[in-house]
Computed example of a mutant assay.
Amino acid sequence: MTTTRRTLLSGSAAVAAGALLGVPAAHAQPGSTGRPKPTVVLVHGAFADASGWNDVAARLIHDGYPVLAPANPLRSVSTDSAYLAGFLATISGPIVLAAHSYGGIVTTNAAAGNANVKALVYVAAFVPDAGETLLGLQTKYPGSRLSESALDFRPAGESVDGYIKKELFRGVFAGDLPKSTAELMWAGQRPADVRTLGEPSGAPAWKSIPSWYLAARDDQVLPVAAQRFMAQRAGAQVREIDASHVAMISQPAAAADLIRRAAR
């Protein structure tokens, strides 16, 4: 998104746009401290869509949090980050930004410079430093089963999209979900442009914004050793659970609890 466009979305224009999106301003429901509850923005990763956050969102909405789960375009780190940065600029008041998997690199870039983002939550997500890539972090430690051989490739304009193969999808991506659920997720998976794997990340927001991390010990996409490394480097408050890569789906209560902690 251009600087001009971001400027247009700032100030009163941002408040107006936020109202159109149903985002509360300063009169949001107060928490126990009497302060307005922050808006929780949930960002999905590759091979998935925002519905993966449904059970987490339901819990947070029940507790009175304003919740938004925008579509992540999955086209490139730079364009996806700019898209989310523009989206965040329409929200008035404090924000807790939570991400899964590839969504972590997007939120790490999109939150930079946004004073409303008070906390970053990563759920089995990438937490890159400047110049790092998804592929570099995914392969930094052994254990990932998401290799080139696990993907089907289909043309997408001038690029190529990757999809996890049907016979590998559950074991690689969602091993602790019922087979029937994993089959539906495979059928509706949203692919990422494969060029995102090698695109370097920008200046990380976690250097100035507090972070929390939910590490999935049974993750077959992003090894838990890599998750621990990134979380520790970012100074995140960490909780570990026995879960597959889609920890927010298999254990939504744990993910929602961590987000509540970040929102306090």
Rank of each mutant, 00 (worst) to 15 (best):
I61Y: 00
R217W: 04
L222G: 03
S211R: 02
H62R: 15
H245P: 06
E132I: 13
A89D: 15
A82W: 01
E199L: 04
A216N: 05
T139Y: 00
D55W: 09
V160H: 00
D161K: 02
L135H: 01
A192G: 00
A112Y: 14
I95P: 07
A115K: 15
H44R: 02
E148P: 01
A50P: 00
T196P: 00
T196S: 08
I105P: 00
L137P: 04
S250I: 12
H27E: 15
S244L: 02
A262V: 02
H245Y: 08
L197C: 01
G103Y: 07
A203W: 01
K166D: 07
D219C: 03
N109I: 02
F169Q: 05
P191L: 02
A203H: 11
A111Y: 03
L135V: 05
P24L: 06
G34T: 13
T139R: 03
V56R: 07
A69D: 06
A46G: 08
P210Q: 06
P191S: 15
L258I: 12
A247H: 06
V246P: 01
Q232L: 12
W206M: 07
A262W: 01
T2W: 01
T133M: 10
I95N: 09
P204T: 06
P252H: 08
N109E: 12
K37T: 10
G93R: 11
L214E: 04
I209V: 15
A14I: 13
L42S: 09
P73D: 11
T33W: 02
R75K: 12
M248T: 09
Q227D: 13
V40W: 05
M1Y: 07
A28F: 04
D219N: 08
N54D: 15
A99P: 12
A174C: 15
E158K: 13
S211M: 05
M1F: 07
S144P: 04
L151V: 05
R59N: 08
